[in-house]
Nucleic acid binder design. Sequence first.
RNA 1: GGCCCGUUCGUCUAGCUGGCCCAGGACGCUAGGUUUUCAUCCUAGAAAUCAGGGGUUCGAAUCCCCUACGGGCUACCA
Length: 505
Amino acid sequence: MEKKVRVRFAPSPTGPLHIGGVRTALYNYLFAKKHGGDFILRIEDTDQNRFVPGAEEYIIESLDWCGIKFNEGVHKGGPYSPYRQSERKNIYKQYADYLIEKGYAYYAFDSAEELDIKRKEFELQKKTFQYGSENRMTFQNSLTINSEEVKQKISNGEHYVIRIKIPENETIEVNDLIRGKVLVNSSLLDDKVLFKSDGLPTYHLANVVDDYLMKVSHVIRGEEWLPSAPLHVLLYRYLGWESEMPIFAHLPLLLKPDGNGKLSKRDGDKLGFPVFPLQWVDPKSKEISSGYRESGYLPEAVVNMLALLGWNPGTEQELFTMDELIQAFSIDRVGKSGSKFDHEKAKWFNHQYLINTSNEEVANIFSKILEEKNIKTDYDYILKVCSIVKERVNFINEMWQQSSFFFIAPLTLDPKSLKDKWKENSSELVLEIQNIISNASDFSANALKEVVSIYIQENQLAMGQIMNALRICIVGASTGPDLFEIISMIGKDETIKRINFAIKK
RNA sequence: GGCCCGUUCGUCUAGCUGGCCCAGGACGCUAGGUUUUCAUCCUAGAAAUCAGGGGUUCGAAUCCCCUACGGGCUACCA
C-alpha cells in the first residue's frame, strides 16, 4: 500500500515570510490536497538567537490570508504535537546519542572561536577548510581524546557539540522528483554539527527526526537545501530509517527581477513591489515593509500568480481557482530553473481577479477606503461606483483616483486637458448644456444622453466638442467612465454647481 | 576557491520519449479598431540563429561531451 501523503511547511520564525516561502507552502499544499494527504505547519526555531517576535503569528496569518490551510501544526495541534521544535527539545538528544553509540557521530569540544581562526587561516592559504575525514583527527573531539577524558569533560559541563562522522569516499545518491538522481561524493561533505552546545539540534538533525516521527512522505523545499540533502540521506540511513525516508523535491528559487540573486526578506521594498504577503513592521527598527494585502492585491490573484511562477499546467489556462490548482497540480510540471518575479504580470493577474470579484466584495473593501477619506455615502451608491470603475483599475486602492469625482467635486482642472480640449466657445456651449440638464426631468444616463444628443444634432455640433468640455467641468480632467452616467449619479444640483465652478476658472 | 543545480522571445513559460517547431501561449511593448475622454476591451505586429562550440543521427531546442554564464551551498543559521 502506498504511504499516505504527508507534507510539511517548516519555516523558521526569523522574520516575515516572503513570497518565495509562500510559494513553497503553496506547492506543498497543492501537492498534499491533490493526493488527499495532510499538510503540516512545523516551526523550526532551533536557533534561539534568530528568533523574531511576531514572526510565527505573521506566517500563520499570511498563509491563512492566501487560503492555504493546514491539517496539523503549531496553531492547530495534531497527533504529532508539539509542532514547535523548541518544544520538542528533549526528543532530539537521544537520536544524537544513538548515532554516537553506533559510531556515526562524535563529541567535539572545539570552540566556535577556535574554528573561526582555523577557517581564516585556511582561507589565507586559499585552501578549503573542512571539518571532515581529512582533518577531524587534528581537533578536540571524542575521536582524538580517550573516552575517560571525554566523560570527564562532559560531566564538568564543558561545552560540546555532536558532529556526524561522514564516511570517506562514498557515493551518496539523492533522488529528487524535480532534478532526478543527484550523486555526491561523501568526501566533499563535512562533519556537520548535529547537536549544538546550547542543547538544541541543528536543522539537519531536527528536520530528519521530525520528518520521520511525523511520518512525512515528501519533503518539498527550496533548492537551497539541495547541497545538504546528501547529509540528510546519510542521517536517515544511520538512524535506520532509510526505508521510510521521504521523497525529496527541491524547488527552483524565486529570483530578483533585476537578474541576480534569490529573493530575500531583506529586499523589503527595494525592488518596487512587495516581497511580503502582509505588511510587516520590524519589531526592532520599526521599519515598515509593504505587503500584497495592503497593496490591494486579492489573495486569489497572488496565489494564482505564485502558482504559475515555476509551475505550469501544460495547457493554455492561466486563471485558476485554488480548487483548479489542486486538480491541475503535479510536481513533475515544476520547472528546474529559477524564475524572476514579474511585477507587471502580477498586476495583470490582480486585474483579472478584480473584474471577476462581485461588486459587493469590492464595495466592502472600497467603503473602508472611503471612510478613511471621510466620505459618507450610501452603500448602493458605492456599489454602483464599484461596478463602473472596478474594471478600469488593477487594484482596489487605485479606485479612489479613478472615482473621486463621484464623491467630491474637482478642486482643480487638469491643465493639459484644458489646453487640449477647452476651446474658445467651450464656455458658452457648456452653459447651454447646463441649461438643458437643469431642465431635464428624467435624470437617467440614457435620458440625459438623449436630450444632449438632440441638442448637438440640432445645432450641428460634434459630440466631442461638447463632451470633452463638459467632462473637464464635471471630472476635472479628460478621464473616466461614461459622462452621462457620472452626471446622472452625482445629480442635477451638483452638476450645475460644477459647471459654474469650472466656467469661472 | 570547492561542490551542486540550472540556461527557449525583455519576463513567465510550451516543447520532456528526436521529424507536426525556420519554435506556440501569456505579460509587457508597438500599431490599428471600438468609445464623448481616459482606461478597459478587440485585432494585428515586432520580439528567442532554442547560451556558445563540438559530436550522435537521414534529421536535434529535444540525446552525449566541452566551454561560458547564472544561481545555490560551503556556520554550534535555517
